[in-house]
C-alpha cells in the first residue's frame, strides 16, 4: 500500500515567479524509506511542505496515509510528524518545556505529556540538557529535539527535511542511528537530503530531483550502477603522465582520462581498494611517486553530472527548466 503519493505536483511561487515544482510525482510504500535527493533549490522543501499541508500546490494532487492533503489537511496533520529544514523549537524555552508544550498541543493530559517528554529526552540522549534553554544546544542536539517533537504521538508518516545538513560527522552519525531506529520501528519515512551517502545509508528508494522534476528514481544500487561506481584518481609529474595513463588503463580495464591542468589521471574502477593497491604497486615498480592518489566514490555532483549533464553547483545557478533530461518516471 502507498503511504504517500504525489501526482504531478506543480508549485509556482508568486514572489519571483519561481517554478519550484514542475509536475513532480512520487510515492512511498508503507513502512519504507524514500529519500528525495537534490541540490539547493531543487524543490525538496517545497514538496515536503505540500505533503505536510503547509503549502497548497497550484495543481496536482497528493495523499498521505490515504488522506487527501488538499481536501482534508486537518486529518493529515493527525497522522504525520514533520521536522523541517530548520529546527523549529522555541529557542528560549528548555528542551523539557518544548516537548511538554507540544505534548499538550497533541492533547495529551499533563501527566502523559510529561511522561512522553521524559521518554523522548531519554531516547534522544537529551536528558542531561533537558532543563537548559535550546539556545545553548549544539546544532545536533537541536535537530534531535526537533525530531523528538515530531514523534510525540507516534506518526504514521514522518517527513524529515535535510535532517543532517549543517551537522558535523559525529552529529550526522548520531542522527542516522536515531533515524535507523525509527525505521526499524516501522514508520514510513520521506526524507530529503543533498548527500548521496545519506540516501544510500537510510533509504530503500531514492528519487533524484532537479528544477522541480524527478530526473531519476530507483534503489540506491540501481542508481549507482547507472551513475557508475568508484573512480581512481592519480596526480603525477608531467613527465610521468604517459606511463601512468597506461598503467591505470591496464589495471582498471577502462580507458583512463586526463585532466591536463591538474595533471590528474582518472578512471572508473570496479574493485576500488584492490585496484588502488595494484596501481600503487605498479607505480612503485616503475619508480613513479604519485603526488596524490585517491579513490573517489560517486558524489552527488557525479549524480548530477551523469543525469543532467551539469554539476550540482551549476544546477542552483542555472535557470530552471531548460536542461533537465527526463529520467525514467
Amino acid at each position: 500500500m502507498k503511504s504517500v503519493s504525489a501526482e504531478q505536483l506543480v508549485k509556482i511561487y508568486k514572489k519571483g515567479n519561481v517554478k519550484a515544482l514542475d509536475g513532480l510525482s512520487l510515492d512511498v510504500e508503507e513502512g519504507t524509506v524514500l529519500s528525495v535527493l537534490g541540490p539547493n533549490g531543487a524543490g525538496k522543501t517545497t514538496v515536503v511542505r505540500i505533503l505536510a499541508t503547509l503549502l497548497s500546490p497550484d495543481s496536482g494532487s497528493a495523499t498521505v496515509a490515504g488522506i487527501d492533503v488538499i481536501k482534508h489537511p486537518e486529518k493529515v496533520r493527525e497522522v504525520i510528524g514533520l521536522s523541517g529544514q530548520y529546527a523549529a523549537v522555541d529557542e528560549i524555552l528548555t528542551g523539557w518545556d518544548n516537548l511538554v508544550m507540544f505534548g499538550r498541543l497533541y492533547h495529551l493530559s499533563k501527566s502523559a505529556a510529561i511522561k512522553r517528554a521524559e521518554e523522548l529526552l531519554e531516547r534522544f540522549s537529551l536528558t542531561e540538557s533537558a532543563r537548559r534553554p535550546i539556545k545553548t544546544y549544539s546544532g545536533g542536539m537541536r535537530r534531535r529535539l526537533d525530531l523528538a517533537a515530531s514523534l510525540i504521538v507516534q506518526p504514521k508518516v514522518l517527513f524529515l527535511d535535510e535532517p543532517t545538513t549543517g551537522l558535523d560527522p559525529r552529529g550526522r552519525q548520531e542522527m542516522w542511528e536515531v533515524i535507523e531506529e525509527l525505521v526499524k520501528g516501522g514508520v514510513t519515512l520521506l526524507l530529503t537530503t543533498q548527500y548521496l551517502d545519506e540516501a544510500d545509508q537510510l533509504a530503500d528508494d531514492i528519487v533524484v530531483i532537479d528544477h522541480g522534476r524527478v530526473i531519476a528514481r530507483g534503489t540506491s544500487d540501481a542508481l549507482k550502477k547507472e551513475i557508475g561506481g568508484e573512480r581512481l584518481e592519480v596526480v603525477v609529474e608531467q613527465s610521468q603522465i604517459a606511463r601512468t595513463m597506461e598503467l591505470v588503463t591496464r589495471v582498471s580495464g577502462a580507458k583512463a582520462t586526463l585532466d591536463e591542468g591538474l595533471r590528474q589521471i582518472s578512471s572508473p574502477v570496479t574493485q576500488g581498494s584492490s585496484a588502488l593497491i595494484e596501481v600503487l604497486r605498479s607505480l612503485d615498480e616503475e619508480g613513479i611517486h604519485p603526488l596524490d592518489i585517491a579513490l573517489k566514490r560517486p558524489s552527488l555532483d557525479d549524480v548530477f553530472m551523469s543525469l543532467t549533464g551539469h554539476g550540482a553547483e551549476e544546477a542552483v545557478a542555472a535557470e530552471s527548466g531548460k536542461k533537465s533530461k527526463r529520467g525514467r518516471s
Binding site: R49, T53, R77, E78, L82, Y86, A87, F102, H107
Partner: peptide, 13 residues
C-alpha cells in the same frame, strides 16, 4: 522567521 509557525501549523490543533 524561525520556522516555529510551521511546526504549529503542522500540529493537529
Amino acid at each position: 522567521t524561525k520556522g516555529l509557525i510551521d511546526r504549529y501549523r503542522s500540529l493537529p490543533i
